[in-house]
Nucleic acid binder design. Structure first.
Lengths: 175, 175
DNA sequence: ACTGCCATGTAATTAGTTACATGATTAT
DNA sequence: ATAATCATGTAACTAATTACATGGCAGT
């Protein structure tokens, strides 16, 4: 039994929201909110789009004036597969491959300078990301609960709350 | 340039703390605290141990009465490489491949039943994990700040705080 | 002219997962 | 007896990363 794949579902989800996207537009999605939870390079996406087309989950088309850009749309079969995926129960929590925690884990001595250094670096990274997400929230929703894209709104709220609480915790340490 | 590896450093870190472990003991570490941040199956660990032995980062030995169990210890070269890794600056935040957030992201409608279902499932998973970590904390540290394994203590504290704040946030939602 | 971005693709390699496999020991 | 756990290993496969590659178009 092969490993459970995720990337095809993300692509289906994007195409369910947009009706038509090219490979580059899909790739760019991983630079914002989705990038908090999944990364994929264009070199992985283009072959995946071909595979999904062959499987009948998406269809491609080109514009009359520009045959360089290839647009994809979701099919009924793709829609069905996306819904089935969302309905599958959550079986386990994610493993966040967190270098900060991993390195900390191996520092035995409270007085080790590296401990302090790691905490400062992590605070800096978290603050930058928090600012970025707060700007995204303002840009996309402006503090208002939206009619559509409600899930998107929620995960952005959640990511912000999570960053904020991590920062609070780190700053409360007396190292 | 190949992708930055992490597993060898984790193995070095464990052997820096323990002086001698066999493959199974190393594998088992991924079921507790380290498992929050990294997963590895024994089928990945055994070949890695051989590779690291060939590179002179660790050395192997067997007990006189049991040649089935192979124990490994860290070398000076291994120690040096571990310290160098810890000193490398943190460059970016982890991507937690979180199915809950991903699925939520694709739900547009606040009234969609799947939204409520996902939240309930996530709460259940988080509560189970929180209980587990609270028991670990009691077992390992008993509420006391330790002299040694201070980093271990901190990441356990941090994981618990993070789970707690995620639960608070989910429960505060009115879906 | 040069830099950067749009747009798509392939090649080479590594990391990680699942499954297959063996044999010993311990508990019910 | 037989099931579970200890202990080590290999084989087959997939996912993902890095690097290589091409050509057009827009701005300075």
């Amino acid at each position: 039994m092969p490993k459970k794949r995720t990337l095809p579902y993300i692509i289906l989800g994007l195409l369910a929201q947009n009706r038509e996207m090219n490979g580059r537009q899909i790739t760019n999605q991983f630079q914002n909110e989705i990038g908090e939870f999944w990364k994929a390079a264009h070199s992985q996406i283009y072959p995946e789009l071909k595979k999904m087309t062959a499987e009948g989950l998406i269809v491609k088309s080109t514009k009359a004036d520009n045959d360089k850009e290839i647009y994809y749309s979701i099919t009924a079969a793709g829609q069905a597969m996306l819904m089935q995926w969302i309905k599958e129960p959550l079986t386990d929590l994610p493993v966040s491959q967190d270098m900060f925690s991993l390195k900390m884990f191996f520092i035995d001595d409270k007085a080790d300078y590296e401990l302090k250094r790691l905490i400062e670096e992590e605070i800096s990274l978290l603050e930058t990301q928090l600012k970025h997400l707060q700007e995204r929230e303002k840009l996309l929703f402006g503090g208002q609960e939206p009619k559509k894209a409600f899930g998107h709104f929620l995960i952005l709220q959640r990511a912000i709350a999570r960053l904020q609480s991590q920062l609070d915790w780190l700053k409360s340490l007396n190292i």
